[in-house]
Design a protein around this nucleic acid. Structure first.
Lengths: 225, 225
DNA sequence: TCCAATTGGAGGACAGCTCTCCGTTTGATT
DNA sequence: AATCAAACGGAGAGCTGTCCTCCAATTGGA
């Protein structure tokens, strides 16, 4: 984020103000990652050991705070896509993109929500901005894999976000029980996405057990429609 | 549901009362299916052209209404698993279970939420009841497929609910844009789940296009944590 | 005709959110 | 040390949205 600690005015923030700004950003980062963009600013303020008023002086509204935090996280995802394109083998590249992008989303619920929906408000916010950078990279990643005959021919670039959605739904669901099982499902999906005639990849982690499934289920709350 | 139109008392409901009971059940069924268990009773009452009070006289609370509606829907899913076991070919059986169970969930958001979470309240409600019937059937379905060498050997019965979760997340996400794309993703997952050396199944429907993805994204609301 | 059953929907009680306001405290500057 | 703009905390206003209660008005059926 913006490492220059000043407002629109040229004057630098007072020492305590700057310290609190950091605290707020840290608390918000943690809470958004753990619980998603739904956390209230009251909660963030409390977790940052700061009054709500302080939060609102520094960030005029919630969206601004979200923007400040996630702007470069979206760039990070674009960066992953670029890394992936830099890998010579087309299939490995695609795999890399899925795996690493999903790792980030599995560790950060807020980022996942930002990537999947249009930001938090209907305004659209940062969704489009980040995605306009990411989309062409994904399209190239997929086309390249097609050209190399590595991807099943009937797969579309526009299946990619749906795969991300699918797997990160699992990551969300099982977060508190076993935060790594989503890797199994990604493995399955990738094997299903790959062109015919390749051996399956080994499952990277053991499955959930009966009790794990039950606990994941009972920890689940239906989303608001 | 209970087709005998009487309360705990032996007296049958007055004609208008019975008519309204049906209206409420119908409206609730529709709205739960479309929007999930989150819909308010006020909304249901309005959609049924009935006062809220009427709803509450007939169904003491929301959970009762949900139970009345979904009890047998859960049996239906168990029925699908039984159908699946009755199919000779183990792989076809498993495929049938996934496809048909997911069709039901894709058409009915409320059912999906009931299967995935522990009912609407922390009480557990109908979740466990239905699932105790379903689980052993799924285990047998999977074991049978393993014995037949049709399923990849490292797949576990407890991956099954996660697959359902994944695919129904797609169904939810794209419901308003193209309610059938989830079939593509199911195809991919099933191909990834099948033992090695089988040809891929053809994609049953065309992919989303760029605009479709965008519209799905903008229609998405982050769940409450 | 009559009355118990039924009805609609205003509104109480609660919960949770965003954001404002203002008396008090604090850091920097002189 | 004295001063004062800047920053602070947090009560609470104002909103939305839920579940559910209550009761005057209405209505089906004996």
């Amino acid at each position: 984020m913006n490492s220059i600690p000043e407002e629109a005015t040229g004057r630098p923030l007072r020492k305590d103000a700057e310290r609190n700004r950091r605290r707020i950003l840290d608390a918000a980062g943690t809470l958004f990652a753990e619980q998603g963009l739904g956390v209230s600013l009251d909660e963030i303020a409390h977790h940052a050991d700061v009054g709500v008023g302080t939060v609102y002086r520094r960030f005029p509204d919630k969206q601004t705070l979200i923007d400040a935090l996630f702007e470069d996280q979206l760039d990070t995802i674009a960066g992953v896509a670029e890394e992936a394109l830099a890998i010579d083998d087309a299939w490995e590249g695609l795999e890399h993109f899925f795996r690493v992008a999903l790792e980030k989303q599995a560790h950060n619920r807020g980022l996942k929500e930002l990537l999947l929906g249009a930001g938090i408000s209907e305004s659209g916010g940062c969704g489009p901005r980040g995605r306009d950078r990411i989309e062409p990279l994904v399209v190239r990643l997929v086309e390249r894999a097609h050209d190399a005959g590595a991807l099943r021919p009937d797969a579309s670039p526009y299946d990619v976000p749906l795969v991300q959605l699918m797997v990160s739904a699992v990551a969300d669901y099982t977060r508190d029980v076993d935060p790594e099982v989503w890797r199994r499902l990604l493995t399955v999906v990738l094997d299903g996405l790959r062109a015919e005639g390749h051996a399956h990849s080994p499952m990277p982690v053991p499955p959930l057990d009966r009790d794990g499934v039950l606990r994941a289920m009972s920890g689940w709350r239906p989303p608001r429609g």
